[in-house]
Design a binder for these strands. Sequence first.
DNA 1: TAGATTGTTAATCGATTAACAATC
DNA 2: TAGATTGTTAATCGATTAACAATC
Lengths: 218, 218
Amino acid sequence: MNNLENVSRSVSRPTLMRLPGYLNYLKLRQKDELVNISATKIASDLKLNHVQVRKDLASISSGGRPKTGYDIKELISDISTFLGYDNVNEAILVGAGKLGKTLLSYDGFSDYGLNILAAFDTDKNLIGNTINGKPIFSLEKLKDVCKRLNLRIGIITVPAAKAQKICNLLIDSGILAIWNFAPVHLHIPDNIILQNENMAASLAILANQLSERIQRKI
Amino acid sequence: MNNLENVSRSVSRPTLMRLPGYLNYLKLRQKDELVNISATKIASDLKLNHVQVRKDLASISSGGRPKTGYDIKELISDISTFLGYDNVNEAILVGAGKLGKTLLSYDGFSDYGLNILAAFDTDKNLIGNTINGKPIFSLEKLKDVCKRLNLRIGIITVPAAKAQKICNLLIDSGILAIWNFAPVHLHIPDNIILQNENMAASLAILANQLSERIQRKI
DNA sequence: TAGATTGTTAATCGATTAACAATC
DNA sequence: TAGATTGTTAATCGATTAACAATC
C-alpha cells in the first residue's frame, strides 16, 4: 500500500513483545563488561529457540558477525531506538486512585520512554495535590490540556464502570493511544490504538496451570 | 499420557486469555436482565470472530441451543468454575512497596478467586503494619508461613535486582506458582509455574503502534 | 416451514522450529 | 583449516477463519 522508504520496519506482535526482554537481558550482560554475545547464548539464557532470537534481532538490527556474535552495545541501541525509548512519549493519566497513584509514583517508565505529565480526577480532595512532582487536575481541564500540549497517550486507571466514559473523553480530546487498566472491554473507533493491561487474563492462566498441575500430581 | 476421566478439559492459551473477557461481558449483560445470548452477538460486541467465540464457549460449557443461543447464567457459572474463581486460591506477596501496597489494597482479586493473605518485606518500618487488613511480616518468616499454611501462589513485587533471590526463596518455601511483577526474566525449574506481568511489553506495543500510525499519517 | 442459530469439518494464515548454506 | 556462529529457506505446528451441515 504505502511504499515510503523510511517507514519503520514492521515486526510481528510476538517479536515486539519479546524485544523489551532482550533489552533487559542485554543491559544486565553489559554490566558484566561483556562486549559480544551470541544468539545461542541469549536463547539458552532466556529459554527461547535460537533461530527465533536470530530472526527477532535481524528484524531490528543490522546484525552480528559469524564466530563473534552481536555487539551488545549496538544491539541495545538498536532495540531502544526501535521501541522508541529514545524519544520521550508524553502521557496523561485519568483516575488518581490507588493504582493511578502507583503509576504516577513509578519512575521506571522513563526507561521505556514514557513520561506521565499529569493526572486528572473528579475527587476534590485530590485535585490540586501533587504526586511525585506530577499535578492532579480537575477532569474538566483534561480536554484543554490534551489539545494544548498535543498529547497522544492516555492512561485509564478509573473504576470499570467509568472507563468507557473516560475513554470517549480522551478520544474527544485528541488522544490516539490508550493504555487501559480498567477491567472492561472498551469500544473504540478503528483509528484509536488500545492496549489493555489485563491482570485478570494473567491470573486466569496462572490459576489454570496451577490447578492442572495439582490434578496431575494427585 | 494421562487418561484420567475428570482431568479438567484443557484449553489453548489464547482461549484461556479470552475467557475472563467473556465473563466480564456476560455479567454486564446479565444486569440488563437478559436471559439468553448468541455467540454472534457476543462476537460483534467484543470484536471477535463468531466461530472463535463458539469454539471458546464449546470448550468450557455444555453449549447453547440453536435459535435461542446460550443461557447467560449457565455460561457465567461454567466460565467461573473453569477458571477456578469459585474455589479460593490463597497467596502471599513479597515486597510491600508502592506496587505491593496497591495490590494488597485492591479488593477486586476476590472476583478472580485470589485472596492475598499477607505480605513480607525486609523494611523494619513496614513490618508489623497492616494494609487493608493484611499483615506485613518479616521476610524471615516467609518460609515458615508458606509451609504451615501449605500455600502455593506467591506474588513478587520487589525491585528487579532482588527478584531472583525472592523467587528462589519462594520455591524453597514450597510455592508452585509465581506471579512476577518485577521487570526481569526469572530462572525457574520446569515444574514451577511463572506468569510475568509484563508492563514493558504492553508499553512497547502501544508505543510502536502509535509511532507507526503517526508515520503513516504524515 | 423458514430462518436464526449452534456446532463441525476443511482451508488458510502466521509463527515457530528444523535443516542447511554462508561466513569469519 | 576447522568450527562457531550468522542468516535463510523449507517444514511443521497451532490458531483463526471460512464453508457447511444440523437443529430447534
